[in-house]
Simulated assay, not measured.
Amino acid sequence: MMTALATVLEVQEDIVVVGCQQKTSCNHCSSKDSCGTGIVSKALPGKVHHWAFHTEKKLSVGQLVEIGLPEKNLLQSAAIVYLTPLLFLLFGALLSEWFLSPMIGLGELTTIVVSVLFALGGYQLAKRLSHHIEQKTEQQVSLLRVLGEPVSDTNLGNAAR
């Protein structure tokens, strides 16, 4: 089980909605200041994921909690998102190179166009499949522990007195 820190966004009886900021690995690289990806990741905020689940614990909005996410579903989703468009691209290129290009006679242009179209089809399929896995993952999110209230400016002022 993978863990993530999340903030409680909403509490409705025994259903809690939490939000978790998506993290990138760009902050750990030694060339993050000169890399284009590192600069973009600093400029744009990360995606926030929301999960809703049942819990018996009393939580309040703004609390920091640790949630557990099933590894299997996350790894399946990552494999689908990365591999499906790539496999469709390769299949389109082979199909075009072996069958369509000899029949039409346009050569590499046909292969490129068909490959791109197949990759776009693979992207759309991956999007649908990963959405289905995301919904399954949302049902399996669990609360591991409550970490407490976030540190705010008013809490810091009271602690200094």
Rank of each mutant, 00 (worst) to 15 (best):
G148R: 02
W98P: 00
W51G: 03
N73R: 12
V116N: 07
T110K: 02
Q124S: 09
V114R: 00
A79D: 01
L90V: 07
M1R: 06
C20F: 06
V113T: 14
V40G: 03
Q124M: 06
G105L: 03
G68W: 01
I133Q: 05
L95D: 00
L74M: 15
F88A: 08
L87H: 03
V8N: 01
S30Q: 14
E56M: 14
D153L: 11
L94R: 00
Q22K: 10
T24N: 07
L144I: 15
Q22C: 05
L147Q: 15
S60R: 10
S30I: 10
Q140R: 11
V61H: 06
L106H: 15
I112F: 13
V146C: 12
A160Q: 14
L117N: 02
K47S: 10
L87Q: 05
S130W: 06
L156M: 12
L9H: 06
S34A: 12
V61P: 01
C26Y: 07
K47W: 05
D33W: 11
L100H: 03
I104M: 10
Q63W: 06
G157F: 13
L117T: 03
S34R: 14
T110C: 10
H28I: 01
L147P: 03
L83R: 04
R128H: 14
A52M: 04
S101I: 03
R128P: 00
L9C: 05
S31A: 13
V141K: 11
L147C: 11
E134H: 09
L100R: 04
H132L: 14
E71L: 13
V16I: 09
L75Q: 06
G107P: 09
E138G: 15
E10A: 07
W98F: 13
L100T: 11
A126W: 09
Y123A: 12
A93L: 08
I39Y: 04
H131Y: 05
F118Y: 10
K47Q: 15
E10R: 11
L89P: 01
Q22G: 11
T110E: 06
W98M: 09
